[in-house]
Design a protein around this nucleic acid. Structure first.
Ligand code: MN
Ligand code: MN
Ligand code: ZN
Ligand code: ZN
Lengths: 154, 154
DNA sequence: TTATTAATTTATAACGATTACAATATAATA
DNA sequence: TATTATATTGTAATCGTTATAAATTAATAA
């Protein structure tokens, strides 16, 4: 089974409620649903994608709430920002150390397993965050030849 | 000597002119100066920083030219985008494989030497670009205690 | 040289993602 | 219930960047 397809246990809303509480956050329905979407779907959505998805079942949701909530989650460090495309914030509730690969044809962002990373020259620095971002093509798009490498830039 | 302080040979404007020509680019004075700034200073400046710096000696320079030129250099793949901070494009004319660390106190972006990086699960993918971005504090700011970790988010 | 054409640069408007703000609604507490 | 704090909303503002069209400069042809 590919790393990308590995299934993790689904979080119930109750799981999410408790997790938010542990981090000092009140669990409004929007917070619950936004976090649940991130942790269960793991598609690294943009704010807009979250908004479009959730407004289907909660039509009163506003984009501002999505942005506010994501900012709050970042401050509390219960989600991370995935910065693999300029001017396109994506969000991930999985905090364990892993990398990301964005397929430039279909736009999907895949999780990567990092076997080893060794850096040097960091004596005296303090590191808060490490991000490994790749750009390329997923097997599906590669087979379908959905992308002309020379036509674009990165 | 730290990796960060390692000096590379300075490029003359004639070196730059030739390099641009090799990549099919006409060498206007702005292109020469922008590339020369990137390759010789290696500070990973933003477009705005490039503009502010170069307009001192070339007051007719416009921000649009800086943006246009950076986009052109990216298309020709003679510079790379450094995406270590959301909504802040930084640019680097050094294309060899290395990582970046942004100091969250002083804002500087340091080059990192990568000893080893091993990934798995990438069978079937095609990789065009790899970016390793760290966020933290540089030794200088760490000593000066210039940053309150809990006050911010990343 | 001069005319013609192509490439570059400029100023400005438009854009997309995000944040700020003030008003309203909801939830917690007294 | 009344009071207070928190969350959400709609909208305006902001920021970095891109698009557009006009003006300037450079290259080429006559
Ligand atoms: Mn992920
Ligand atoms: Mn660099
Ligand atoms: Zn794909
Ligand atoms: Zn610093």
């Amino acid at each position: 089974m590919d790393h990308q397809e590995k299934k993790q246990k689904r979080w119930s809303l109750e799981d999410v409620r408790q997790y938010l509480a542990e981090h000092g956050l009140r669990a409004s329905i929007y917070r619950l649903k936004i976090f649940e979407f991130l942790i269960n779907e793991r598609t690294h959505p943009t704010a807009e994608e979250i908004y479009n998805r959730l407004k289907k079942e909660m039509p009163a949701l506003s984009p501002a709430t999505v942005y506010n909530t994501l900012r709050l989650f970042l401050e509390k460090k219960i989600i991370q920002l995935v910065n693999v495309e300029k001017n396109e914030g994506r969000y991930d509730a999985t905090l364990s150390w892993h990398g990301h690969l964005k397929c430039l044809a279909c736009g999907r962002v895949f999780d990567l397993h990092i076997e080893t990373l060794k850096l040097s020259g960091l004596e005296g620095f303090e590191i808060f965050e490490k991000h490994l971002n790749l750009r390329g093509l997923c097997p599906e798009c590669l087979k379908a030849k959905k992308y002309d490498k020379e036509g674009k830039h990165g």
